[in-house]
Each structure stands twice: as C-alpha cells, then as structure tokens.
Design a protein around this nucleic acid. Structure first.
Lengths: 196, 196
DNA sequence: TATTTTTTATTGACGCGTCAATCAATAAAA
DNA sequence: TTTTATTGATTGACGCGTCAATAAAAAATA
C-alpha cells in the first residue's frame, strides 16, 4: 500500500535505524538488511533512497553532527557571559541527547571509518574545527588568544577522551562526573591566570 | 626449504605485518591475505600459527600493550621523585615508539573492536587500569588520594583524547605539543594545590 | 652409518557463507 | 499512463578457514 511522500519519513527512519544498529553492534559492521529491518523496510528500499551503504553512513554522521550543532546553538542562546558559553559547550557534549551509548559508539566507529573515507574525514574535521571555534568564542573573552587556543585544544581533547573512555565502560561512568572533570580543569585554568 | 624453529619468527613477522596493515588501512578491515602477504607468507600459514583472525588481532593488541608496559617500566627506572614518575608516564605515551600513525590507528581500531569482543575489551580495561595505576603511583605522593584519583582520570582522558585527535591529523600535530598540553595541565593542577 | 618414520613448515586450491547492490515485478497513487 | 513506493529473488565479489599435498629437517630404527 504505497502512499505518496514517503521519502522523508523513510530517510529519517533509516538513519535512526542506522544509529541504533551501530549502537548495538558497536561498529559500522552492520548489514544493510539489519538496518532496513529495524526501519521496517526491505534492504532494497534502503538502497533505493540512499544508493550505496557509504552514503547512508555518511548521511547518518551528518545527522548526528547537525543535531549536536542545533543543541549547541540553543545552549548558546541562553549563555550571556563568556564563561557561560564555555560551560554551554561542555554541557551539550555531555547532555542526555549526546552522551548516550548509541551516539558514543557511532562517534568512535566513524572516527575509525574516517581513516578510509575522505568524505567522512572532512566531516569530522568540520566537527573538530567547530568545537574548537565554539570553545574559543567563550575563552577569548577570558584569556589572551594564545592561551585560549591552548585551553580550547586541551578541553576538546578532554571531551573526546572522556567519550572514548566511556565506550569502554571503565573509568568515567556518568555524564556528571565527566562534566565535573572538564569544569574542574577549566576552573583551575581560568582562575589561575587572573591572579598574578 | 623449511628450516626448524620458524614459529617465533613467523609470529613476530605476522604481528608486525598486522600493525603496519592496520596502520595503512586505518582499521581492522584488513584481510588475512594482506597481512600474510606483508609478512612474506601465505594466508594458510597465518591461520596455521594463529588459528582464527580474531586470535591474530588479539595477539597484536597484546603485543602493543606489552611494549607500552616495557617502555613504561624502563622510564620508571629513571624517575626518582613522584613528579618525575608522572612525567614519565606522559613521556612514554607520546614517545616516538608509541605515538606513531600505525600504533595510533591500531589503538583506535581496537577500541572499536572491543565493543564486539569481550576478550579485547578485557585487554583494553587492563590498559586503562594500568595507566591509571601508573599515574597514581606518582600523584599520590603529591596530592591527597581523592584529588590524585581525579587528576589521574583527567590525565588519562587527555592522553586518549590527544591520541584520537591525532588520528584525524587535525588539531594537535606533533608529540611535543601534546606533551606540553598534558604537562601544562599537570603543572597548574599540582602547583595550585600546594599553595593554600 | 644408512634407512625409515615422524615432526615441522609451507602453500595452492577450494568450499562455504555473507553481503552489497541490482533488477524485474507488483501495486497504488497522480 | 506515468510516477512513486516497495520487495523478493538473484548475482557477483570477497574473504575466512580448511585440507590435501609437498618438502625438508629431526628422530628413531636397523
């Protein structure tokens, strides 16, 4: 019973299914049939809408990045001081929407895949640059540029590191501990420089 | 022209070939034939010595971990003060032997694979615990336990994060910058608490 | 010492399963 | 009747793991 205008719904369902499949398997080694099955359609339909598997994976990563960006913009709207902007970036990174097993597994898996695919690599570079830039937008209001750049670099690495360690389910357990660690770093780093 | 006592040589050659293959492809998606070819033998021989592919990969990760541990022990031998022990851990993590594209790619790929394989997960947990313990062996001589634990956690995350970002070849370029970032964090963290 | 037997090393060929991608066919809307 | 939606069946490639076969060293036996 084919109705008209199914495409956007199917695309979204397939992308959601991809995320959940990756989250469960823990890697991109998921079959098109598996994904299609979760979306309630045949594998042929997945190919119909996305072409090759690469494109579905690419669209999925792009979707994750877009959601992260949306969340960050929203959080920026509520932040007024530079310090709050920095905290907003951290908070979004470890929010319930982002810091969940499925998304974490996807990030990790896509990092690996980016080694092969230049398209994905470009996408992840955009994320890295955007994260850095978002952090800088707050830090430059507190520290001189060179130092702000350093702190941004370290904070970004810290966030990524906490993600990867979360994937192991060892060490950092929950989002609150992760946020506390990053904020603690920022606090000592930002307070320390205002005294002497 | 089969000589006796080939096993240890072949095993080492195959593990080395595995690392270089993973490093080049950037993932564990390397065929047994590819690996065997690099080691100068047939794929059948690789199976003869290691059984399934999983076991070869496992042996490879174990080898990487063992080398990291050896390097760390050696560095600890030269460290006398607690502060030097901490720096030793950092230095080894970013030493020329460890912080090279091949090894970094392998770490990343194995992190992903650990999601599927409980054996690999156990191995990586050992690494995480050992890293934490090595850091603590120095930090507990400087900070009270609870704080040392936190700093160890953050430092470990920082190291892992710098590894993952290095894989993207964006952000942190060389080992020296990475070391500087971690040391800078440690410096502010350790000096800050000794004053009040 | 000469021989036979066993063990170790090694590979080419192949079967079997898996999976991405295609295609022809069906059916309902426009 | 043209377009959109949908799938079952099929194909073709690829890769893991096995196996029988070969050959040389080592051990055992005569």
């Amino acid at each position: 019973m084919p109705k008209i205008g199914m495409e956007p719904m199917r695309r979204k369902a397939l992308i959601d299914a991809t995320i959940s499949a990756i989250g469960e398997r823990g890697s991109l080694d998921v079959t098109m049939s598996e994904i299609a099955g979760r979306a309630g359609v045949s594998s042929a339909l997945a190919h119909h809408y996305f072409g090759a598997k690469d494109e579905l994976l690419f669209a999925t990563m792009r979707h994750i990045l877009a959601e992260l960006n949306t969340d960050t913009r929203r959080a920026f709207g509520l932040a007024v001081t530079p310090r709050q902007r920095v905290s907003a970036v951290v908070a979004v990174s470890f929010s319930d929407d982002q810091f969940q097993p499925q998304i974490i597994a996807a990030w990790l898996a896509f990092y690996v895949e980016a080694q092969k695919s230049s398209d994905l690599r470009r996408l992840l570079r955009i994320y890295a640059r955007r994260l850095h830039s978002n952090l800088m937008s707050g830090l430059t209001g507190i520290l001189p540029w060179a130092e702000a750049d350093r702190v941004a670099e370290a904070t970004a690495a810290l966030i990524d590191g906490l993600y990867i360690r979360r994937a192991l389910k060892d060490g950092v357990p929950d989002a609150q501990t992760a946020i506390a660690l990053v904020e603690d770093y920022l606090e000592t780093k930002l307070n320390g420089r205002s005294l002497p």
